[in-house]
Design a binder for these strands. Sequence first.
RNA 1: GCUGCUGUAGCUCAGUGGUAGAGCGCAUCCUUGGUAAGGCUGAGGUCGAGAGUUCAAUUCUCUCCAGCAGCACCA
Length: 842
Amino acid sequence: MSGGHDSRFDPGQADARWQAAWDEAGCFYADSNSDKPKSYVLEMFPYPSGHVHMGHVRNYTMGDVLARYKRMRGHEVLHPMGWDAFGMPAENAAMEKNVHPGGWTRANIAHMKAQLKRIGFALDWSREFATCDPDYYGHEQALFLDLYEAGLVYRKESEVNWDPVDMTVLANEQVIDGKGWRSGAVVEKRKLSQWFLKITDFAEELLDGLGKLDDWPEKVRLMQENWIGKSQGLQLRFALSNGASVDVYTTRPDTIFGASFVAIAPDHPIAQDVAANNCDAANFIALCKRGGTTAAELETAEKLGFDIGIGAVHPFTGQHLPVYIANFVLMEYGTGAVMGVPGHDQRDFEFASKYELPIIRVVAKSADAANAAFAGEAEAGDGVVVNSQFLDGMSVDDAISAVIARAESESWGQGKTVWRLRDWGVSRQRYWGTPIPFVHCQTCGIVPVPKSQLPVVLPDDVDFQTPGNPLVRHPDWKHVDCPACGAKAERETDTLDTFVDSSWYFLRFASQPADRPFDREEVAKWLPVEQYIGGIEHAILHLLYARFWTRALNHIGLIDVQEPFASLFTQGMVTHETYSRREGGRETFFSPAEVTRTGDRAVLTEDAQPVTVGRVIKMSKSKKNVVDPDAIIDNYGADAVRWFMLSDSPPERDLPWSEAGIEGCWRYVQRLWRLLGQYDPAAAGEDKALARKTHQTIAACAEDIEALSFNKAVARLYELTGATEKAPPSASRSQAIHSLLLLASPMMPHLAEEAWHAMGESGLIANASWPEVDPALLVEDEVTIAVQHKGKLRDTLTVAKGTPKDELEALALASQKVQRSLDGAEVRKVIVVPDRLVNIVT
RNA sequence: GCUGCUGUAGCUCAGUGGUAGAGCGCAUCCUUGGUAAGGCUGAGGUCGAGAGUUCAAUUCUCUCCAGCAGCACCA
């Protein structure tokens, strides 16, 4: 390392040097015993697919800037990294390339870790782990057993998507048009015994907790709220004319006098009974099952019903209502049966119109409008209850309470809360996941593996050349003695959903004892995560599961926190335009590397013929609109890439990648470097305007970073750079350069170290403090005042801040430009806003 | 259909009840020992549309339009 300032910044030789220096100094090691205030900055850990993509780079750069900034503000920062390493792609690779999922995963991790290191992230690598480490998943098995002890784990029969060719269970998203995504075979519904976690026990808590997550995006809280889906209403029993009865659930018991039919789901037990003896009913049910499930199909699907010829007795009027099997009633929600109130529910309205059932008004705008006609659609809104005997004249809310009270006192119904949220099925019939630590014994039944025998380790010698779960056909892995009675027994061969792995990894990052999943005290030092950053695609599942696990572990007394993530930020995607050609019916895509872009046109480099420039969309392999971080870093260095990730787009919005954009960043890196080279500690003289600009920027930049508005911070650094370049040499200018370097250091850490060293500063800038703000310099003492006439700007005045109104008015009227504009007209009114403007009205 | 977000320069975005801004791009010119460059200057805007409040609206209110996203027969 030589002192002095070269004419150009060369990331090719600087980046790796400073990365090594940080490692050597152990800068980013998080000390839980430090007295400093603690900050836990976390980005969603990646799946080791093999390559870091631009989305990762953007995500981790944001967290990195925040982590480095917090360190500069004197915080002890925990900024860890690890690998969400179980999952299907490894098994797919095993089948396609005949490699072991573990080996494939380890190789990917090694490669991606090297890629992340090249970008210079301030990570505490000493805490790194992969969820496929037996050490990690063994502790996960222990936690699973704890939850089992607490009654939060159970088994039940559940329907799954079964691919008969691959002999495996498919996730819903792997079923395309009813066929397996890989085999193309028609997927069957099969009943299997599955492991479940009782997340529904926490539905109320998870919902209430959302209200306190003030630093979560409103959007995400709303999505979770909808997902949990709390609704309150009445479950009531209709006696049937055949002697049986049917339970229905409604959120609008106030409209009970408007009921003109009862509808049950096609898979409702009553419907099944009827179908057993009635071909037409059976045919109708089969027809319902064939119905599509896409949004468009649901939108346009006609409401269809089949009258089963049984009457349902209305609890108040005693009237017999027809009972239909209907295609729009879902078995999974409520009781799988509804009362049809056509006047006040749009679906029921459509149904009643088709089958010519009565449409009775029981809610009106006012009591006078009791018999008003419907305008071709149901009225779901608020109003006064009418045509409803003892409810007449009540508000909707009062009538709801009154009907529930009556139902409960007469024992034909009761108030009930229904949730959309279901228990979480965690069984996967897969190899590459955490083995579920249970044994099936003929005499003892389901027996937990004793904690002393954990971890239950996956066998290495497995083959993927035959379809199905390798754990099932492994020669000896599953054969064990029952831990309870010692007889021959079999291991559970299901493994856990990988969402379980990511539901507590943030605890293990905070604390990693060998003998326990985590240490309660250590966890308390770091949790909750101060800032969590990741993609919006995890708004519901991952974030809800992680919240559930945290609450469940709190519930059984293992940790003190309830909510894992105090503040959540969801960043936008990295996008790129697409390049394609349409030949015949086929569209062929080309990667940015194959295309030469000039102005509005793009040609394929190979044949110099034009290609169509398509929309700017998320980078994806199928559209080939991806750029490789490694190649970009080779060309421009880590700092230019980091700078691009932060500039332009607000972080929550999509960031369009472009060659021109990275070029611009590269130029700015060099421009900043040149300016930093002009640092002269010996320069004398004050430049008040520049000093003011400097301190305003320090203050604003801090605010922007804390709000994660990195693009604004970047814009301010551009401004300060421009102002400093233009200023003549002075002590203020040197100060500006010095501050600018510190402000830019979290974003361009390599350039910052290089310049810091060249300036003759000692130590690493990574350990330096954020510059102090002089509050006196934040306020302007001179202001520019606009002078308007007829709503247009005529002149500006530069005056001392706080110049009184009358003085401003006199100055404005004295202006030659204003006089010319007035042209002798009578001044009727003058509006003076101190420090802002003078408006002359004629 | 419901909900949310967005609409300001060619592009990506700041900003504000009172002078419309930055970066990139574009154009002209200059430099050629900062050179896989650098610099000067410049053009470019009904601040999505309409109405209201105001001395004054891009900003506040209302209506509408467009784009994007999420959810969706949840009783």
